[in-house]
Design a protein around this nucleic acid. Structure first.
Lengths: 357, 357
DNA sequence: CTGAAAGCGCTTACAG
DNA sequence: CTGAAAGCGCTTACAG
């Protein structure tokens, strides 16, 4: 099954032999370290060029493994019944952790309550005290996040943000969706489904709505689409910080009493199942319903035809990529890529069974 | 930045020390090889259990790397201007090749003409002659593919099929879309966009249409949706083996002369750009147009609003996953997973810039 | 400025 | 049935 002596390429030993030096000197040149005469350096570099030398990553890592542990901190909202969404990034982080634990990478998880900025700040302090080698965070609270980021930058600790950006702080260290665009996409789907005389309802359901820039950006994107395309539909906003079902039902009842012509509802986050429950209970089936995130409740309503479209940006992959990028950066000094924008996936009843977060 | 002596887990050396044997003996137990007394075997196994020993994959691979080369063959249609689609799986294969060349894996590519079964068979013979360690194929021609598969099975050579299955031959060695379902999904999207009195046109444009089961399955899926939902829309089929633009335009002209009420057109493969060109040239903008695959021409028409939806099943990832699965199987005897069905992605003008094949 | 040697954690051919 | 030793291709502390 296998042929012998079918080397992929020559290694340091061969280079050393050809250059008539020791492998230690070759290593110095490869890693651009001090202390090699220009002459030998040039000679070795020529050979490296000619042989098109590629280091054996396996051996490299194995040799480095003895050096010690890399500590990466992950700062995320905790996972509760009503914030099930955050399980996905966590799964991605766990997956990455599994793949790189061979390399002595240790990941510490710091959880906060997404409705309590105090708890966020508390975790920031805990995290800062130990000063890890790299940090993954979802910058839910912008001000407190900026404080952390300043600390990290001063200390030269690399970091990556996932899930949402800090408004007004363009950063190359971001892995996540272009949220404005995902609202724009939602509007396009709505445009396919409703008539020009129908209204669109944008429902923002969030405990801390004033700090929730993501929700606002989705709405901005949706409104921009209708404006750019000069569409005549009226767009109505609904805002509530009461996320429990009875409150949602009450608000919907009241709204639908006056607004008789709603053709579509976009819930700007994963709380769409609350509205779905309301529509199902009240037997309203002519309204197109859209929302965010591939979480269990939402998928159930999608399969039953109550929710028409879910938009999802692979949160698990965000967590996975975030950790891997930090790892690459710490171990191989690979630059943390420029901003990585996730695909914006459209999920319906008919493709949901094949979807992967 | 790093702490010393922060071992992930104990290794063979530690196990050997605790069991009072040599590491060679430990190795024998780990790999369930013959020639260890029951007594020592039991002792070593207990220690392995207790320590929850996990082999260091790096070291394992490095040690194995010296053994020789693994040869994987990939059998694919060639990439031409009108079969640009096949560039994507090829890119995925190249990416995988890059990642595993460290492990002395060599990938040989065999290309055939997708409109010429003779050329396929010729490559099958070439491939069979050298008998590689693993095979990746797109089974475009079912009969000839079955011949190859029988040969491989007899020789105990693992194989994986991508892109489409062989009808009537359910195989666990498949990585690709559920094509019937993707037609079903297309129908759902159409259902959102047209009225109940409008017609749907299914356009099958393929050089070798009688052998193209994928195209037929898409149509089956679409028809099944309309039937399952008892929708009144008439569905019209168009079939042509002339894939050049003038022929397509002629067929469309003729068809539209009699059928005045078409609300949507689904082109069952990547040839959708031909129909898009026709609609754009003739200034027809009220028809919803759907097709397959994220190739340049199609994306251009999508961006210009001529094509409404593209459906795509990550062909690049299929190639990548196919090679990686074979690699895992050959090196670690990981079972080639059960059938892996790809997500069915919906791409529109508003999310195409973020899509990744 | 340069080199010899040990070590990363595994596998294996060989000797007993 | 078992072990000592060499080797995979790199990195690094140490000696000169």
């Amino acid at each position: 099954m296998k042929k012998k002596n079918d080397k992929v390429s020559a290694g340091v030993k061969e280079i050393a032999r050809l250059a008539n030096v020791s492998i230690a000197t070759v290593d110095r040149v490869i890693h651009k370290r001090e202390g090699v005469s220009e002459k030998t350096k040039a000679r070795i570099e020529a050979i490296i060029q000619k042989l098109n030398y590629q280091p054996n990553i396996l051996a490299q890592r194995l040799a480095l493994a003895s050096r010690g542990t890399i500590r990466i901190a992950a700062l995320l909202p905790n996972v509760s019944e009503e914030t099930e969404f955050w399980q996905a990034p966590l799964d991605g982080i766990d997956q990455a952790a599994g793949e790189i634990r061979q390399y002595n990478v240790h990941i510490e998880r710091f959880f906060f309550d997404q409705n309590d900025r105090q708890s966020f700040f508390k975790q920031v302090r805990r995290l800062s005290k130990t000063l890890p080698d790299g940090v993954l965070l979802s910058p839910i609270f912008p001000e407190e996040s900026m404080i952390l980021i300043r600390t990290l930058e001063d200390a030269g600790v690399p970091y990556i943000m996932i899930n949402s950006e800090i408004v007004g702080f363009e950063s190359p260290h971001y892995i996540g969706p272009d949220i404005f665009h995902s609202g724009y996409l939602a509007a396009q789907l709505i445009d396919y489904c409703i008539d020009s005389h129908q209204q669109v309802l944008v429902a923002n359901i969030s405990g801390d709505i004033d700090n929730n820039y993501a929700v606002a950006q989705v709405e901005d994107g949706l409104r921009a689409y209708f404006k750019d395309h000069r569409l005549p539909n009226t767009i109505i906003s609904l805002k509530t910080t009461q996320t429990d079902y009875p409150s949602i039902a009450r608000r919907m009842d009241k709204l639908l009493r006056t607004e008789k012509n709603i053709g579509a509802i976009l819930v700007t986050n994963s709380r769409v199942s609350g509205v779905a429950k309301y529509l199902e209970k009240t037997g309203i089936s002519h309204i197109t319903l859209l929302g965010y995130d591939f979480v269990k409740d939402n998928v159930d309503y999608l399969k039953r035809g109550v929710i028409d479209f879910l938009i999802c940006e692979k949160p698990q992959e965000q967590g996975y990529r975030g950790i891997m990028a930090l790892f690459q950066h710490l171990v191989y000094s690979n630059p943390t890529e420029k901003k990585y924008l996730m695909p914006i996936d459209i999920i319906t009843k008919e493709n949901c069974e094949f979807y992967r977060n």
